[in-house]
Structure formats: structure tokens, C-alpha cells
């Protein structure tokens, strides 16, 4: 079983966001993590592999610092990493998906896993786009995945419940919380990861030029939201305060 995991490096959830002198999001000095949903994807890939035979390759599109996130996946137990560094160009979701699909197109795979969304740009569309480009089915927001006999049974979260979907492999799946509990890399894993292959590619290496991945979406301006102002703390004993709150919600805020 060949399993590919699409993995994005994202800003830490604690990161403070500022704008740089060009009015864009400042990324200097921000600590980076593996997208938390992609940890579920890596973990699931490892579990599938451990049930039988297989190979797990993690793939990322990003700058050289992305190697940290890829190494973390290798330390968890993935076998190989591929990093495509597109250089200093603006990539939208279409561009990112095109690079991933072109890279994957040259590889063997039965299963593609990813996060259902990245926690920073969070558009929840890259893996779906990759599946469309590769002409394989996708099942999103998966909380349970069973692989057997060239097929997958995936439980996906939907509003007000869940659905169990069967697809034939090869297929793509995106991970939602609940799929599994990701393992921490062991000391041994971290040591081993240093020797595992990290294949670094450029756009040209995967057979693309900048025009083919020109962004469809144009960002016009970035801004920081106005901080919410603290309102009033309602004084008094519980009973008194609760009563006053009920009144304020109706008469002042007019929200009930």
C-alpha cells in the first residue's frame, strides 16, 4: 500500500499576526508547526501501513523551512519526504493544488491523505482540488477510515450526524479531529528521521512553470481586525446579576 500525505506547515495557533511594510502578513519570527489536521493524516497513514505492508511519503509545497514539518512526520514514522519549493511566487489554492497534483502524478499511490483544512489560510479546498486534478474520488472530513480489499469505508462528519461512504482506491481522504490520536515522535524516531530521504524539488523539476500555476484569486488588501472591546461586568449576587443580564439582553442588546 503506497500512501501519500499532503502536509502543510502553518503558523502556530498562538502566533500574533502583524503586517509587514508591504501590508502583507508578516511571517518573519513566527513559530511554525505542522498543520494539526495533517498530524491526524500522518498518524492514519502510519496506522494503515502498520496493519500490513506499505510506504508513507509526506509531500509539501513550501519554502525550505518546511523541512521542519516534514522531518517531524519522518520522526513519527513516515518513510520519505518530498518538498517542492516554488520560490518567491504567490500561490493560491489552485496553484498549490496544481503543484501537488503534478508532483503526485509522477508517483505511485493507493491512498492520498491530507487535513480537511489548514488552520491559517483554512480554505479547506486543496486536497479536493488535487483529487479532481488526479481524477480520483475524495471523501472529506473523515473521522474513521477502514481499508480492505482495494476499497475504503470512510465515516465523514456531516451537519447533524455522519455518513459512511465507500470508495474504490485510489482515493483521497481529508482528516477531521476524532480520526485518531497522533503519536509523538520518539527519540529513536527523531534520530532515524535524520537519515530518511528528503527529496527537494523546484517547480521545473516537477515540470511546471510559473504561468501554469498563476493564482486565480488576487488578494487586494490585508488588515487586522479591530480588537473587541470589553463590555460591562454585571455586579451583584448571582440571582441579581442573572436577572439584570436577562433584562439587558432583551432591552439593551436586543438579541433575544
Amino acid at each position: 500500500m503506497k500512501i501519500l500525505v499532503c502536509l502543510k506547515q502553518t503558523f502556530d495557533t498562538e502566533a500574533k499576526i502583524t503586517l509587514d511594510s508591504n501590508g502583507k502578513i508578516e511571517s518573519k519570527g513566527v513559530s511554525m508547526i505542522m498543520n494539526p489536521y495533517d498530524e491526524f493524516a500522518v498518524e492514519e497513514a502510519l496506522r494503515i501501513k502498520e496493519k500490513g505492508e506499505g510506504e508513507v511519503t509526506v509531500i509539501s509545497v513550501g519554502g525550505q523551512q518546511t523541512q521542519d514539518a516534514l522531518r517531524q512526520a519522518l520522526a513519527m514514522g513516515a518513510d520519505k519526504a518530498v518538498l517542492v519549493d516554488p520560490g518567491e511566487i504567490e500561490l493560491d489554492e489552485f496553484s498549490t493544488a496544481t503543484v501537488l497534483a503534478k508532483t503526485i502524478g509522477g508517483m505511485e499511490y493507493d491512498i492520498i491523505l491530507g487535513g480537511f483544512r489548514a488552520i491559517d489560510d483554512g480554505s479547506a479546498q486543496v486536497v479536493g482540488r488535487v483529487a479532481e486534478l488526479l481524477n480520483i474520488p475524495v471523501v472529506n472530513v473523515v473521522t474513521k477510515l477502514e481499508i480492505e480489499g482495494g476499497k475504503a469505508l470512510a465515516t465523514r462528519e456531516v451537519e447533524g450526524g455522519s455518513e459512511v461512504i465507500e470508495v474504490a482506491l485510489p482515493a483521497a481522504f481529508t482528516a477531521q479531529k476524532g480520526l485518531n490520536e497522533p503519536r509523538y515522535p520518539s527519540m529513536k524516531g527523531i534520530m532515524k528521521a535524520k537519515k530518511k530521504p528528503m527529496d527537494k524539488k523546484t517547480l521545473a523539476d516537477v515540470g511546471l512553470d510559473e504561468n501554469q500555476i498563476a493564482a486565480k484569486v488576487k488578494a487586494l488588501s490585508f488588515s487586522l481586525p479591530e480588537a473587541r472591546q470589553a463590555g460591562k461586568v454585571i455586579p451583584g449576587e448571582a440571582a441579581e446579576a442573572a436577572k439584570e443580564l436577562a433584562r439587558l439582553l432583551r432591552e439593551e442588546a436586543k438579541v433575544i
Binding site: 473587541r228 463590555g231 442573572a242 443580564l245 436577562a246
Partner: peptide, 25 residues
Amino acid sequence: KVADYGIVGDLFEVVPILTEELKKI
């Protein structure tokens, strides 16, 4: 810091009373 209205108190006391008050309203 982000709340428009806050009550500093034990939720186990406040919530049931709030429920009753809102029911009336």
C-alpha cells in the same frame, strides 16, 4: 476581554437562575 456582558460568579448558581429569568422574558 471580549465579552459584551459578563457575570463573575459560579455558573452552577448563575445559569439556572438565568434560565428561569429568560423563560419569563
